[in-house]
Nucleic acid binder design. Sequence first.
DNA 1: GGAGAATGTAAGCAGTGCACACATGGAAGG
DNA 2: CCTTCCATGTGTGCACTGCTTACATTCTCC
Lengths: 193, 193
Amino acid sequence: MPQATAYHHGDLRAACLRAARELLEEDGSAALSMRAVARRAGVSPTAPYRHFPEREALVSAVAAEGYRELAEHLLAAHPSPATPNELAAVAVAYVRFALDHPALFRAMFAEPCDPGNEERAAATEAIAAYVRDLVRRAFPGADPDALWTAVWALVHGLAFLHLDGKLDASAHEAVADQVRTAVLAMLAAAPVS
Amino acid sequence: MPQATAYHHGDLRAACLRAARELLEEDGSAALSMRAVARRAGVSPTAPYRHFPEREALVSAVAAEGYRELAEHLLAAHPSPATPNELAAVAVAYVRFALDHPALFRAMFAEPCDPGNEERAAATEAIAAYVRDLVRRAFPGADPDALWTAVWALVHGLAFLHLDGKLDASAHEAVADQVRTAVLAMLAAAPVS
DNA sequence: GGAGAATGTAAGCAGTGCACACATGGAAGG
DNA sequence: CCTTCCATGTGTGCACTGCTTACATTCTCC
């Protein structure tokens, strides 16, 4: 780790990531700008390019952090959900994370990602693994490969529809109820044959 | 309708919408730029502002068009789906629309929308109504209010996960199979009580 | 202590959204 | 017919963006 002086920052990479997170949390709608990050870190506009070759690289790094936090958040909601009610609780946690960190969540999913970013791929995989385990426990009879995608998609779709204003997301408790109800209804759905 | 001259375009509004659509189809990843639209329409950079007070208004208008096309596309896939297989076919059509028009689909959902735009609200409502009817037919026993959101979210989530590269979307037929399988697995899911 | 790599700065280019003042010409009223 | 008004176009300019290139400073290692 280099030392901090008037000229050399010391740990600009971490400072950029922190600044980026702060900016995303402060303005959930504005796009993340490289120059704004530099300003917040108290450094020249082009300094961040020493640590992130392009904007996308910074966004990918922030997104990877977001994936880790989302995984923790889901684990905190329930470490090993196995029943419909527990699954619904995790779904509520997923949607709440998206609504509480809209810009971060968009950076994680909507921004173009370089598939080569290993940190990011690993972080995504952690979430996928959590969902796969959940599905194996909750649906012992089903094909886990087919079902875990469906479960993730259901929850992810609810998150984005709320985030993008297609479903009413104004009241916290109402959103939670809505998500719970939707998930339980889907699990109980008995189609006509 | 004003007349077309060397100075006055004639129907710049429609020309802007057409140009915007072309740009979105040509480069599915680039953001839509007001100036690029103006260039394509053969007009000065600020001329489109006479018809769209801001960028968001143009995007909203294009998005509304997209909603109408998506609705048609779903109707073409099946006018009145009622069985799991028919529902799965509609799901495949939804995801395919997203993958065939990635930039348009993003404009429809990911871009900030002004909730006041009536054209856009009406177009969204058409899709919601289609899904609601579908659910009523396919799941006569269920609570339609709870379930239609879940069905939309499931399909919408599959679309975005594929669009954002979280699920492999490289081969057309593989995507279709994957979506069909996921939807059918979800409908057949029998959770542990 | 000197060389070279790492990490910062400064200046500049092309692109963007948008506000403003100005130009053009079609349509309505005298 | 001719003026006047106004919708619709142009031109200019500002603040911002990502990113490149050249230069400055300092850390590290021999």
